[in-house]
Design a protein around this nucleic acid. Structure first.
Lengths: 241, 241
DNA sequence: CGCCCGATTATGCATAGACATAATGTCGCG
DNA sequence: CGCGACATTATGTCTATGCATAATCGGGCG
């Protein structure tokens, strides 16, 4: 195979090496929160490089939230953030396929109608596309999806054949968005939901509600109800971001 | 002194203005995914600044994932990422207080024991502190917490009076961590859990399991079971980071 | 003794130039 | 006509330097 990486230091660009070393000291705890890291001119001397080089590194670390900078005082290791995690919510289709199971999709209902009183207030006055569909894994019902798409924001959606394409996948690839909000909760299956998901009435389900904006207009609102016995969300986090 | 900033536009640093303008074009859709943004030398000419200045901006945007750079070819607006959200999981105590309700805490059980077969495999051979406690909001049971703390990693925990301090708060402030994993699921209350949370057996609950590492050693593993009718998680996301 | 004012100093921002690297396109040769 | 060598070009990295800004420290004055 290719070159064995040089014993001492890699042929990494210098700024990556500097960044890695500083990150290492912080993450290992050698430089605890509140610790004043060496001044730029000290790092400059230590690495034998120009101040701009270490400056860019520290600025990047500050941008990532690992370091806080105070003029004249120095740069300090930031306090660990409040608990926050990066929650990956992949396409159901991809996720099922990724687990090696066969994905099934079924469009249950499709209506084009003006938004009514039961809909989220952001849609009032607009025309929406209402979709209900079912996701299956290995043939078993996995999740019921109820979705509203704003036709004012996404007129193209009216033409799409959602009997063949899950709306989540389509939207993900066709509509840019700038913000989203998720609401995750547990609920008991209603009679209707229980029938569709093929579980007992009252069975625990995981509900994922998502609302997606583009700039200030709501693009879509979706509620996915997963069978609690077949699904869970996983979120991973490491503080370096 | 009040130097007359020439235009009306900026007392912003130039690089922030450049960044804001580019981000704006991307987020507004004016520069769609795949669009080749102007070359550095064009931006240099447009803003009348040095190349390093626009270079730093574009490098930062690339670091944030908004832009992909290809040598010789140019810089391109990145495809929208897979769905991912920043999930804030605050201290239960803080969150209850933040909603204006009164927080209550109760230690149900505390045992110091060697890890057994029912515990996560990472603890085997270690001594652990096992805690069970109940969080209340306005007097009503909100969440049952079952926690294991590795005494090998956190020997100080043996001395703490967890009858007064919720273990989550204490750990958050005393033990740095480098990585965490969450598992979010819905489950039906068992007889025991139902009795503690004062709900019917089988009621839908939201389960949040978290395992926290420091470097490679597991610090703590916790499972919080929330009453589904009283609690949900909220996650917000905007792609610019 | 306390408070304000200036000198010091670390970071913040920007410049102009240099060389390295990698991908693209083109030209010329077989 | 196909293909490899080479020139072109945009980004990647780094340097050396300058001035701006803000916080801190120390000293002098009321």
């Amino acid at each position: 195979m290719a070159d064995a990486t040089e014993g001492e230091t890699a042929q990494l660009p210098l700024h990556q090496r500097i960044r890695a070393e500083i990150e290492g000291k912080i993450l290992s705890g050698e430089w605890p929160p509140g610790y004043r890291i060496p001044f730029e001119h000290e790092l400059t001397a230590h690495y034998g490089c120009a101040r701009m080089t270490v400056n860019k590194v520290i600025a990047a670390l500050a941008g990532a939230g690992l370091i806080e900078r105070r003029r004249r005082a120095g740069s300090f290791v930031a306090q660990p953030r409040l608990q926050s995690a990066v929650l990956e919510i992949p396409d159901i289709q991809q996720e099922v396929a990724g687990r090696g199971e066969t994905y099934g999709y079924e469009l249950i209902g499709r209506r084009r109608r003006p938004a009514g009183e039961d809909d989220p207030a952001v849609f009032t006055g607009q025309e929406v596309l209402e979709l209900r569909c079912l996701h299956r894994a290995n043939g078993r019902p996995l999740a019921l999806e109820e979705r509203l798409i704003s036709l004012a924001s996404v007129p193209e959606a009216a033409e799409v054949d959602f009997a063949a394409t899950p709306p989540g996948s389509w939207l993900l690839h066709h509509v840019p968005w700038t913000e989203a909000e998720h609401r995750i909760s547990a609920l008991a299956a209603s009679t209707k939901v229980a029938a569709i998901l093929e579980v007992a009435k009252g069975a625990a389900c995981l509900s994922l509600e998502r609302r997606t904006w583009r700039a200030t207009e709501t693009v879509t609102a979706v509620r996915q109800i997963f069978r609690g016995d077949l699904y869970h969300l996983v979120a991973r986090f490491s503080p370096q971001g």
